[in-house]
Amino acid sequence: MAKRVPRVGVGGPVGSGKTMLIEQVVPVLFSMGYRAGIISNDVVSKEDADRMRRNLATEKGMLAEDLVVGLATGGCPHTAVREDPSMNIAEVEEMESRHPELDLIIIESGGDNITTTFSPALADYFIYIVDVAGGDKYPRKRGLGIETCDLLVINKIDLAPHVGADLKVMERDAKAVRGNRPFAFVNCRTGEGVDKVARHIVRDVLFELPPKARAG
């Protein structure tokens, strides 16, 4: 049997930048030789998947078009990645069997609230993304996503001065809530900080092993 492809879950509130983070991190991983597949959950549409397919597959040619799959989950977004992840697991397993050459599969949750988490049966690693415009009180207010994720990503740092958010406060609170587990400040519009997210994925999910294509 082919080896199980590692799975990374990306969750966060509506508009926090889940799709943009994936659009930024996949090229960074690509430049290091790692090949990713993407499964994108949306409640109703498949807009996010279509956008990522156009950007990453059609225009940049970083992956085959069938490696960006959209899932319209219908109900609560967290149900599809936690309580009953069977629909997502089926997609992951199908992608894995069609593309054993993949180094990882990224699963994007539909936009949800602060209690999003991924079932360990679905994702090996959970990135939770919030944005500065939600207010600098965000990390302090906790919630399962912020508390339990493997990597907390705080996006849109360029907006901090415009929304009266203090990044120092967010940093202090993130550390207080999360202990020594990591967080990263990013700006997904410019790509600032995204290399740090990629490094965490390479270290903690891919174990710094060489990309499959290179390992031969």
């Binding site: 199980r4 360990p120 049966a121 090996d124 339990t148 903690d204 999910v205 174990f207």
Partner: peptide
């Protein structure tokens, strides 16, 4: 406890040894 259901993770031991867990489904 949440991690006990995970198949894949990187951890350090209490003596700092670097461990990669990659368990069967």
């Amino acid at each position: 406890r949440a991690e006990s259901e995970r198949l894949r993770m990187r951890k350090s031991t209490d003596r700092g040894t670097d461990i990669a867990l990659s368990m069967p489904a």
